[in-house]
Write a protein that binds this DNA or RNA. Sequence first.
RNA 1: GCCGAAGUGGCGGAACUGGCAGACGCGCCGGACUCAAAAUCCGGUUCCCCUCGGGGAGUGUGGGUUCGAUUCCCACCUUCGGCACCA
Length: 815
Amino acid sequence: MDRYDAQRIEERWQRVWEDAQAFHVENPRPGAAAEERHWYQLEMWPYPSGILHMGHVLNYTMGDVATHFRRRQGWRVVRPMGYDSFGLPAENAAINEGGHPREIVERNIATIRTQMKRLGWAVDWQREISSHDPDYYRWTQWLFLKFFEAGLAYRKEAPVNWCPNDQTVLANEQVVDGRCERCGAEVEARNLTQWFFRITAYADELRRYELPPDGEWPERTKTIQRNWIGRSEGAEILFRIEELDLDVPVFTTRPDTLFGATFFVLAPEHPLVERLAERSPNAGDLREYARKAGAKRGEERAAAEEKTGVFTGYFATNPVNEARIPIWVADYVLMEYGTGAIMAVPAHDERDFAFAQRFDLPVVQVVAPREGEVVEGAAYVEHTGDEVLVGSAQFSGMSSPEGKRAVVDWLAGRARGRDAVSFRLRDWSFSRQRYWGAPIPVVYCDDCGIVPLPYDELPLLLPEVEDYRPRGVAPLASNEEWMRVACPRCGGDARREADTMDTFVDSAWYFLRYAEPHDQEAPFDRAAVDYWLPVSQYIGGIDHATGHLMYSRFFVKVLNDLGLVGIREPFARLFHQGWVQQGGTKMSKSKGNVTGPDELLERYGADALRLYILFLGPADQDMEWSESGLEGMARFVRRLWRAVGEVAERPATDAPATGTLARKAHETIVRVSDDIGRRFQFNTPIAAVMELVNELSRAGADDPAARLAAETAVSLIQPYAPHVAEELWQRLGHERLWEQPWPQADESQLERGTFELVVQVNGKVRDRFAVDAGLSEEEMVARAKASARVQAHIEGAQVRKTIVVPRKLVNLVVE
RNA sequence: GCCGAAGUGGCGGAACUGGCAGACGCGCCGGACUCAAAAUCCGGUUCCCCUCGGGGAGUGUGGGUUCGAUUCCCACCUUCGGCACCA
């Protein structure tokens, strides 16, 4: 038997698959009956800001196992691949390396493609796409225009997150602990005019999951998304400012405490503040306070030790009791949430209470515990839910929930209030003052305002610029020739939008493009999308829970409402792989702690590496990368090679494959199929096949079931180690294992003639021995009591109770 | 503070529905082969006690349910993740 040579074998089969286009799958022809079961396997596409590391190896190998497994179970499986090549990650990499982003990403893509092929991943290479390709971003722009027409993309001035290092605006989702997700710089607040997607219009829907019947999302991901969206039910109530003849709405979740409102607070950014300042004796202080507060980010404000604020000199009238309460401006009220104005009820809100204490404002309790009484003096009363209203005129005596309802109804009858829901989610800011992204296809015309480009002018190509590095203004603005344009509507002078789109716009729809990736007529082919989507199994990091995964869901819901797709959710089943860590932190290029696969591929081969990364632990848990076990996995591959090779060198016989080795083979089929298929567990199947190979080695190649065991082991390990499996399969006299049906266990072979009877005394195992499988419960007890070891523990005692688990154990309970 | 996940040998982990804790692998120890080494193969490897038959303890801690708990319930500790001046 020749020596196992991973390099030679892997190179050979990769060429075979390439020549056969083994993993290419055609879309069904229009009108063809779609009887076949089909499956869309997808892992999140990589950023080509660098090349592959062990985290990628884990992710895509997992997808690969799932792909082979489904394919061989008779499913029509599409498994595409592409590159998230536009945007900040790629551009920053280019800046670091000092080249043009296009050159850098295209070089990285070429390397990644080579690495992916070297790892033997079963990808349909005819569906390869890149988001920086005009063939792709043309359609990103097309989708923007659709959103714009629908009023779902708009421009507004708003306080936004500014990264001083990357010199660009960031979405809320890209700010982590007050820092830029990409570079770690502390984010500042700036008031800028930016483009937004109206994702808040879908806030309620995004909290619901309209998954297909076989769909399944991890609960923790849904929880993260629901937390991010946030949702509070309450009421909007109008307070009147007589002096200005103006009604100001507030949002509250506690309309039952309306009688306890003792003051009123506006956020510093509230438009009304300037109007009040105009006629206020306190104008100087007011403007100064509002200006300072507006420059602080929410977190800075929250970190403040003591509440701050300024009295405006005005009063608002409480609609329920005509009380006139002072209007303050304070930065603990946020403009972005609710209406940017609140009624302050210090007795029943901790923050209002702290403010009232600080500025010596009255505290009036209007809700009391059912059994308790009204607390005398100024105090904050914790909300328990089981309370009654007090001092609230006709509402007194009602329970808290009844009070809420009754107060809102009363206000609604006088057009002073209504039910309202508030979300934490903000609209998605997606314009970036950066070069490397899809240009936003609009122009600004003095006469016509914002004018979208006509569809037939797409793609609006990203122009070349002298210097693409970020400097606070969009680099595209420096290309004057490109910026100057005739208005598509009136033909007059106009200027282009110089900002580009965020990377996450590109990735919010790429899974649709894969269905018909080279369509020149449309972003995606409706029939192909209807066939393949939603993605059957999506695999990627949980770090995208509030970003990419939410944006993609939003896009699909909008496209559905526009009649462009039939689905309401993009991803039916979602799985998060754990992080491959090095030195205790997630392996990533930006952290500089990466180990790449190239050297390991050379030393151990793709099969050993693929097996090892999945054997390291449960795929959904974080794992510390360590090379120490890889040699052991290479050992296993050689053991497989030898054990199966010895069988292959013998002529096949007609002798029936029976006995313990045959049963082990069938048991292994059951275990592996169940682990991958039902449990989506990838480490234990490897252990199961190891056991089978160990048993085959022990039994020897002349065991009557040796050939069955060898073929089964090779067939079951194929999704993990496709090259060596294919080679051995051929040596066993067969062909094209990648197309062979997944093995089926023979039920009759699983039957055991005996089983191991476990005997416990008082729940402790005292003996175990093989007995006939057909034993009745009485016989099992008799055999148990007959055991000398058991006797030693029940002698002289009385058996008070006997528990029998058929075909498993007997437990004797004694005094 | 609120919400969620996880704690098992020296290490990664297994034990799916309450029924043999530690599968499989790494590492380590011993042996075979060898002039020697590598490779390979065989045996051992949770801890403590032991007269070598075996006995006791043991899945973060403390309780509970049960004939029986890594698994279910309660409280707590630790670690990680999400949210947090969101009215």
